[in-house]
Amino acid sequence: MQLVVARIGRAHGIKGEVTVEVRTDEPELRLGPGAVLATDPASAGPLTIEIGRVHSGRLLLRFEGVRDRTAAEALRNTLLIAEVDPAEHPEDPDEFYDHQLMDLDVVLADGTEIGRITDISHLPSQDLFIVERPDGREVMIPFVEEIVTEIDLEKQRAVIAPPPGLIDESEAARDEVADGHSASGRDEN
């Protein structure tokens, strides 16, 4: 199975290094020297990591055969893809790979269906589940312990305890727009 583990950013310096937006919880495993990564677009790779280092809080990589700023800049926005065994799991039982969470059913503790995870957004402060509701709308669920109370891979579901307004806020907003009223009860027209 192929997983996106990073996106190449801008060139750094003149010797072929690039900044990288890490998209894996295990950069030391996936982005270490000697790692051979497929790319998207495929024409940019495969790329073999020669050197990796952290500079000012950002991961910098240099690839074999990329020796100058021009060659490094040509790789900008290229996705780095690692081949991962689908049976592989993180060491920590409370951590999951994105592919394990995709398509899980999202339900409340009482079994009420909320939707299905269609994407995961990795933000600096937290991750978000993008959940498609049965009616086709999307809702974002913060992937934090207080809200996502259980991940059951055997039952293919994520149990949530959303705070008031997280799920039904979008429904209330849609109804208000349809009625032409704001939350304050005043007419928006």
Rank of each mutant, 00 (worst) to 15 (best):
M1W: 01
Q2R: 09
Q2T: 04
L3N: 13
V5C: 12
V5H: 07
A6C: 10
R7D: 01
R7W: 02
R10M: 01
R10H: 08
H12L: 01
G13N: 08
I14W: 04
K15E: 09
K15Q: 12
E17F: 14
V20L: 08
E21V: 02
V22Y: 05
D25C: 07
E26N: 06
P27D: 07
E28G: 13
G34L: 09
V36G: 04
V36M: 10
L37W: 06
A38Y: 01
A38I: 00
T39P: 10
A42K: 06
A42N: 02
G45I: 03
P46A: 10
P46N: 08
I49P: 07
E50S: 12
I51P: 00
R58M: 14
L60P: 01
L61V: 05
R62S: 07
R62L: 01
F63Q: 08
E64K: 15
E64L: 11
G65P: 05
T70E: 15
A71Y: 00
A71M: 09
A72D: 08
E73L: 06
L75W: 14
L75Q: 09
L75F: 08
R76D: 08
R76M: 10
L79N: 09
I81D: 01
A82F: 05
E83D: 15
V84R: 15
D85G: 06
A87D: 14
H89Y: 04
H89V: 11
P90T: 03
D92P: 02
D92T: 01
D92K: 03
D92L: 07
D92H: 12
E95Y: 10
F96T: 01
F96R: 04
Y97C: 10
Y97K: 10
Q100C: 03
L101E: 06
M102V: 04
V106Q: 10
L108Y: 11
D110H: 10
E113W: 08
E113N: 02
R116V: 13
I117V: 15
T118N: 06
I120N: 08
I120Q: 12
S121K: 12
H122M: 12
H122P: 00
P124A: 09
Q126N: 05
D127M: 09
L128G: 04
F129D: 10
I130Q: 11
V131Q: 09
D135P: 04
D135S: 11
V139P: 02
M140K: 09
I141G: 06
P142A: 11
F143L: 14
F143K: 14
V144A: 11
E145M: 04
E146C: 02
T149N: 03
T149R: 12
I151M: 11
L153Y: 05
L153V: 13
K155A: 15
A158M: 09
A158E: 12
I160D: 10
A161C: 01
P162T: 03
P163S: 05
P164T: 05
P164I: 06
G165A: 11
G165V: 12
L166Q: 10
I167M: 11
E169S: 13
S170D: 13
S170P: 01
A172H: 11
A173P: 00
D175V: 03
D175C: 02
V177W: 13
A178N: 13
H181Y: 15
S182T: 13
G185K: 09
